[in-house]
Amino acid sequence: MLTAALDLLLAEGAAALSAQRLHAATGVSRSTIYRHWPTPHAVLAALVEVAPRREATPTGDVRIDLHTEVDVLCDRLRDKPVGGFLQAIVAAAAWDSTMAGLRRRYVEDLLEPFRAALAPAGLASAERDEVVSAIVSPLLLDSLLLDRPAARGRAHQTVDAIADDVGSAQARRRPAAPR
């Protein structure tokens, strides 16, 4: 059922997640669909719940790990279902405010590997979120609003600048070696 819902979402958007359309696509009775997913929001929530989450495996080197996450996110934004799903959920949130929470949750799951990559830097939560936004926001802008491939090279330049800044800040915080 959810596979058919994902196919409909990717092909036609969240408006296609009605019980009638799901019934037509799957043959499952409308009453069964209504019982489990009474609204398109409920179907979309179920899809967000079962969406695979990527578990990051940081090396401990912030620069390398952020570069890896940039490449993974750029690939995911380019490919379906992640890129298509994200576009559909953003569009759905535009016409149905109840979808905004689902959109936020899905995006937060996409951002979590970046936060994990930054853990060794010892940044405060607010600083970490600023760094993640600086890297990821342009990629999402390219993919979702400008309908072009995410600018991987630009994101890598941002990562290098941030890694240099983080390294400098860490060096300033270290106590001076005894003489």
Rank of each mutant, 00 (worst) to 15 (best):
E55P: 00
D129P: 00
G122T: 01
R128C: 04
A121L: 02
E127K: 05
A24D: 14
S97Q: 15
A92G: 12
G83D: 09
A134Y: 01
S133Y: 02
H36T: 14
T68S: 12
P52A: 09
V82K: 00
Y106D: 00
F114S: 03
D65A: 02
I33W: 04
I135V: 14
E55C: 02
P52F: 03
T39M: 12
D65N: 02
S29V: 04
C74M: 09
S29F: 05
L73R: 08
H67Y: 04
G27H: 08
R35Y: 13
L44P: 08
V62P: 02
K80T: 14
H36Y: 14
E108F: 10
T57C: 10
V72I: 14
P81D: 12
H23W: 06
D96Y: 10
E69W: 03
G27K: 09
A116Q: 13
A116L: 11
D79Y: 05
A25F: 09
I64P: 00
W95N: 12
R53C: 12
A24Y: 01
V70H: 04
G60N: 07
E55H: 07
V132L: 01
P58K: 05
S125K: 02
G27L: 09
R53M: 14
R54K: 10
E108K: 12
H23Y: 10
H67N: 06
P38L: 12
T32M: 13
Y34L: 15
V43Y: 08
V90M: 06
H41Y: 15
S133A: 15
D65P: 02
G122P: 01
E112T: 09
F85L: 14
A94T: 15
D65S: 03
V136L: 01
W95H: 15
H41G: 07
G60I: 07
A119C: 00
P52R: 11
P81Q: 13
P58A: 04
E127L: 06
V131Y: 03
A91I: 01
R53Q: 15
E108Q: 15
A119K: 04
R103I: 00
A46V: 01
L102G: 15
L139Y: 05
T57Y: 09
V50P: 06
H23K: 03
L118Q: 01
V107D: 04
Y34I: 11
R76W: 08
G83Q: 09
R128M: 03
P40G: 12
D109L: 04
A24S: 12
L22Q: 08
A93T: 05
P38G: 11
S31M: 09
G60Y: 07
G84F: 14
D71W: 05
P58Y: 06
L22T: 09
V107R: 12
D109I: 00
G27W: 07
E108C: 06
R78I: 00
L118P: 01
S97I: 10
I33A: 04
T32H: 13
A92F: 05
G83P: 11
L47Q: 08
V28W: 03
